[in-house]
């Protein structure tokens, strides 16, 4: 995973609450066995509406998506993150995210920033009024900026540490091999085994 320190650029406003992962990537594309190439299918049904925000060329090249409550609800499909990544989006800002979706974003190095609803609304207003509005997210200082406007956000320190260094979760955990083995040694033998 690439290190994430700063995401700066234009932001596309996704002005709907409870956007579910079936909208972000429909189930029929989950038959693919690759990790990439999902961008063209992102929000497929909504993109049929010419007025849908992703059809507005002013937002081409946006690296941030502004969203509403409970973004990414529903299915655990990580394909939703791969689809958003395929759109060129590197960070999401919303009042809240669905838990599994947020975990999946973290795994893929997509930054999720939670801000109070009125702050997200303010950013949506700015990005809607002027699609060239630049937003900066700085992970080190945990700050979101749009011109003179500035807010700080919370992030779990472990996740921040990992994102800033672009560390791979699995290699990190493998370093705990001895701890895992010690845990297994004292684990109850009554837990079931799947052996046929």
């Amino acid at each position: 995973m690439d290190a994430v320190t700063n995401v700066t650029g234009r932001a596309v406003p996704m002005d709907r609450s409870n956007v579910d992962t079936d909208q972000i990537i429909p189930a029929k594309y989950l038959k693919r066995i690759e990790r990439t190439g999902y961008g063209p299918f992102a929000f497929e049904a909504w993109r049929k509406d010419p007025d849908f925000v992703l059809n507005n060329a002013s937002y081409d090249g946006a690296v941030i998506m502004l969203a509403k409550h409970n973004f990414g609800s529903g299915s655990s499909r990580e394909h939703a993150v791969w689809a958003i990544e395929g759109l060129g989006v590197r960070a999401l800002i919303a009042p809240s995210f669905a838990d599994i979706f947020r975990n999946n974003c973290f795994q893929g190095g997509i930054l999720t920033v939670e801000l109070p609803e009125e702050d997200v609304d303010e950013l949506m207003r700015r990005a809607t009024d002027d699609p060239t509005t630049e937003i900066e997210i700085d992970l080190e200082t945990q700050t979101v900026r749009a011109a003179e406007w500035e807010r700080t956000f919370e992030i779990d320190p472990f996740r921040k540490y990992r994102l800033q260094r672009g560390l791979d979760d699995i290699s990190m955990t493998i370093e705990y091999d001895a701890d895992v083995a010690a845990f297994e040694a004292q684990r109850s033998p009554l837990f079931p085994s799947t052996g046929v």
Binding site: I100, N103, Q107, T173, I174, V180
Partner: peptide, 20 residues
């Protein structure tokens, strides 16, 4: 818990997962 594909790989490799 429901998990995504990267976490599936993590659990396959380590039988553990990182969770808040």
């Amino acid at each position: 818990f429901g998990i995504g594909t990267s976490e599936v790989e993590h659990v396959l490799a380590t039988q553990t997962m990182r969770q808040v």
